Every structure is written in structure tokens, then in C-alpha cells.
Amino acid sequence: MLRAYLQSFQLLTDDEITSFENLLTYKQLKKDDYFIEAGQVCKEVAFITSGFFRSYYYSSKEEEVTYCFTFSNSFITAYSSFLTQESTSENIQALTDIEMYAISRDDMLHLEASSSNWLKLFKLMAEREYVKMEKRIFMLQLENAETRYTDLLKNHPEYLQLIPLGYLSSYLGITQRHLSRIRKSITN
């Protein structure tokens, strides 16, 4: 799964992918465990092979705000903390049991120094994440709640079947009651 994912970018040689795989550590998390919690410094990136996470932070009113879900066949990290080596404000929590392969920041930096292919790959991945984040911000700021829900239904139906409604409503920026009304109006 991971090898196929890396090959899909068509940037790395087989030897480079093998070198990467040799640096990985297999890890498991139980449902509700954390990949990282607010206040910690992120020292690794992981590739999720099974399960999914939610990322959230606390608002100024001390309310949990879910801003991201990350499913299997994806990389996960507290990216700002990983880059700056400063403590993070986010929490990344397992919503299911998780299986993943992690690599340390030091090993990632070593890979970057070993080949320009890694730099190209990391740049491409960062650009994709930026575009995804920008689309999410625009959706939250420009569209109404029903449009955001309809977009989610169209583009990520797995969210609607796997994620508890409280987290889903937080992700959409609405109350759980409002989400229930929207769901009811769409199914009628």
C-alpha cells in the first residue's frame, strides 16, 4: 500500500522507496489514543495503513473544533510543529484502531539531503495539502451549511458513514441540531 502510494508520484526510484521503507517503524494505536496532543512537539510523520484520525483544537471558548479527518492510505503529522519544532496547538486522535508506519523527522531530513527526488516529492505533497486546506477555508467562508454538507456528501460520503455526528457538525462549522435539520431536508 505505501510503496504503491509513493510510486504513484513517479518521482522516486525503487531503491529510494526501499531506503524509506527500511527507516519505518510499525505502530498501532487504539481508538481514542493520540498521535500527538496540544503542547507537544511533533517529531515524526506516519503513513496510515488502517483506520482514521480526527484533528482538532480548542477554541477561545474551550470548545473542541474538528478541522480535519485523515483516512488510511495517507500521511499524517502535525505539520507546522514538524517544520518549526515548536509545540503544536492541535490534537490528532484515533477515531478507530490504527495501524501505521512512522518515520522520524531526523530520518526525513536525511532523506531530503540524500536525493533531490525527495525534495520534489515533499514539495509536491505540501502543495497538495495547501490546496486542500485553501479549498476547505473557502468552503467554510463562502458557502452556507447546506452547501458544505452537500459537498461532503458528494466528495466524501465515507465521512458521513464513519464519523460521529458531533465531530461531523464541528467539522462543518454548525451545531449538531442544525446538521440534523440539513440531513432531514436533503433526504425528504
Results as ranks from 00 to 15, higher is better:
R3N: 07
K184I: 04
Y56I: 01
L95W: 10
T187A: 08
P164W: 07
T77R: 13
L140A: 03
Q10A: 10
K30C: 10
F20E: 08
I186H: 11
S104V: 01
F71I: 07
F82Q: 08
D107T: 00
I98L: 02
A46Y: 05
Y34T: 08
S170Q: 03
Y58P: 05
L162A: 11
F20W: 12
Y79E: 09
S8M: 03
Y58Q: 06
S115A: 14
K120D: 07
R3Q: 09
L168D: 04
R148A: 04
L153P: 05
L23N: 14
H178R: 03
K154E: 09
N22D: 13
I182K: 08
F9R: 05
F69Q: 05
R105I: 04
H156G: 07
T66C: 13
K27G: 02
P157L: 02
S81T: 01
G51C: 05
L6E: 01
L111M: 10
S89R: 07
F138T: 12
Y56R: 01
L160R: 04
H110F: 14
H110Q: 12
N73E: 04
P157D: 01
I182A: 10
S116N: 14
N188V: 08
R3C: 08
T13P: 14
A113E: 14
Y57S: 06
M108K: 14
K120C: 07
L140G: 07
E63L: 09
S104M: 03
A102C: 15
E146R: 12
F35P: 13
Q161G: 10
S55G: 13
E127Y: 15
L142G: 15
G51T: 01
K132V: 04
S50M: 04
V41N: 04
R136M: 03
E16T: 06
T70L: 03
K43L: 11
E64K: 08
H110I: 06
E64W: 02
F53P: 11
L153A: 10
M133Y: 15
I36W: 15
A113L: 11
S19V: 07
F9E: 02
K27L: 01
L142M: 15
Q7K: 06
M125Y: 08
Y34A: 09
D33Y: 08
I76E: 09
T25V: 15
L179N: 05
V131H: 12
M100V: 07
S72H: 06
H110G: 10
T150S: 15
S185W: 11
A4R: 09
K120Y: 10
I92L: 02
A78P: 13
T84P: 01
F122T: 08
T175H: 03
R54I: 01
Y56L: 00
L172M: 02
F52S: 00
Y5L: 02
Q176T: 08
L24Q: 08
I17H: 12
Y26C: 09
C68T: 12
M139T: 13
C68A: 14
S89C: 03
L165P: 15
F138C: 12
R177G: 04
R181F: 14
S169Q: 04
F69K: 03
S114R: 14
S72D: 06
E37V: 09
L172E: 03
R177K: 09
Q141V: 06
S8E: 02
T175W: 02
F52E: 00
S55C: 10
K43D: 12
H178V: 01
F35Y: 05
E90I: 10
E129W: 06
L179C: 06
D107F: 02
R136C: 01
I36E: 11
V41E: 04
A126C: 03
I174R: 05
T13K: 07
